[in-house]
Simulated assay, not measured.
Amino acid sequence: MDLLLILSYASVCIAIFKIFNIPLTKWTVPTAVLGGVIIVGALIILMNYNHPYTAHGRQIYTSVPIMPVVRGKVIEVPVQANQLLKQGDVLFKLDPEPFQAVVDQRRAELAAAEQLVPQLLAQFNSAQAATNAAKAERDRSQKVYQRYAEGRRKGGANSPFSDLEVENRQQAYLSAEARLQVAQANESNARMAYESQIDGVNTTVASLLGQLDKALFDLEQTVVRAPTDGYVTQLGLRVGMVAVPMPLRPVMTFIPKEQSLFVGAFWENSINRLKEGDPAEFIVDAKPGMVFKGKVRQVLPAIAEGEFQANGRLLGAEVFFKHSRSLVLIDPEPRFDEFNFPMGVSGQVAIYTEHFHHLSVMRKVLLRMQGWLNYIFPFH
């Protein structure tokens, strides 16, 4: 861009010398050169500061690594590479038989557990009846023992009840009391087994319901679908491969269909006056001679060259030798998407601020001249 400005000034000087027949002397040539240094230098400084330009621009996009949630053998890949898909379209299918077998097993276990609930109720009712019977027996034995003990106490030597009979009745009463305690313990166990519930559902049944839901979820995951509208590119998945849910080994890459976003990498000293909403223009190598418009969305608040993470390694001095650039996000005009460029095309970007706005005309002319140069491949 700066070279174009210098060449333009040189062309103007040559034209002036030719048109007005100005002789080439030791005064005229140095004057033209010195004037060029001052004029071109001032224009470059003012434009770079108020209307920055970068030759490092690129359309960016997000890719989604696709991997199955469950492990299985691929039995079908109906998707075609580089064709637009709708959200929910099938990308590939895994063999569902092992997962269907687990679902059938969980359903059988759940049915058995549901049938067990009435049995627990019957056991609880039986335990209650046994407790009531043991309590009645205990009460009867207690009354008999008390009658024998009272008769022995009041009758003394003339009592019709002997000490042995009283002792036997006492032992019968204590035995009945022990049987009642056993029956109450059995009733308590039966009650806890029957009344053990979560949200009104038996705990065993609830546990098996959860396992069945998990098995059904795994079965559903054997069909992998498109997360959004978009397309799959560089498709290498084939029938017979084993797909494994490993984050580091996706089986395909999905490109969502989203609003285009262009990014320019600017020198740090040229972003001082940039702000959200500033008009921008950019050219792409894929369409020589055409200029696209846009607006600044954001100047990214972080620069990657200054990043470090807690990983047990010290930050070396070599990172300070790299000259960093600041990234500026630009929303292109809708017309940009009409050309169906390959995602990630490169180009050059110019941004126009409200300061020294009259110089933006020159920046626009230079950007269009750069776009015309895209017809010449050696310039890239």
Score class of each variant (00 low, 15 high):
Ile60Gln: 13
Pro65Arg: 09
Val70Gly: 10
Pro52His: 03
Lys73Ala: 05
Tyr49Trp: 05
Lys26Cys: 02
Val33Gly: 03
Cys13Tyr: 00
Pro30Arg: 04
Phe20Lys: 02
Val40Leu: 08
Leu46Gly: 01
Ile16Tyr: 07
Ile39Asn: 12
Val33Asn: 03
Met47Asp: 01
Phe20Trp: 12
Ala10Asn: 10
Ile44Glu: 13
Tyr61Arg: 07
Lys73Met: 13
Thr54Trp: 01
Val37Asn: 07
Lys18Ile: 08
Ser63Pro: 04
Ser11Thr: 09
Gly36His: 02
Ile39Phe: 15
Thr25Ser: 11
Gly36Val: 06
Met47Tyr: 13
Tyr53Asn: 02
Lys18Tyr: 14
Glu76Ala: 15
Ile16Arg: 07
Gln80Arg: 13
Val12Trp: 03
Arg71Met: 10
Ile66Cys: 14
His56Lys: 14
Gly35Asn: 06
Ala81Arg: 03
Asn50Asp: 05
Val79His: 15
Tyr53Asp: 03
Thr25Asp: 09
Ile16Gly: 09
Val40Gly: 07
Ala10Cys: 12
His56Met: 11
Ala42Asp: 05
Leu7His: 07
Val37Phe: 15
Ile45Asn: 06
Ile44Phe: 07
Ile60Asp: 13
Ile38Cys: 12
Tyr61Gln: 05
Glu76Asp: 14
Trp27Tyr: 09
Ser8Gly: 02
Ala10Phe: 07
Trp27Met: 03
Leu24Arg: 08
Ile66Ser: 04
Tyr61Trp: 10
Val79Thr: 07
Ile22Tyr: 10
Ala15Tyr: 05
Val12Cys: 06
Tyr61His: 13
Pro65His: 08
Pro23Trp: 05
Phe17Val: 11
Leu46Phe: 12
Pro68Ser: 14
Thr31Met: 05
Phe17Lys: 09
Val69His: 04
Leu24Phe: 15
Ser63Gln: 07
Ile14Asn: 13
Ala32Arg: 04
Tyr61Ala: 06
Lys18Trp: 00
Ile45Asp: 11
Val64Tyr: 11
Cys13Leu: 08
Ala42Val: 14
Ala32Ser: 12
Tyr9Ala: 03
Gly72Ile: 00
Thr54Val: 00
Val69Asp: 04
Gly36Asp: 11
Gln80Cys: 01
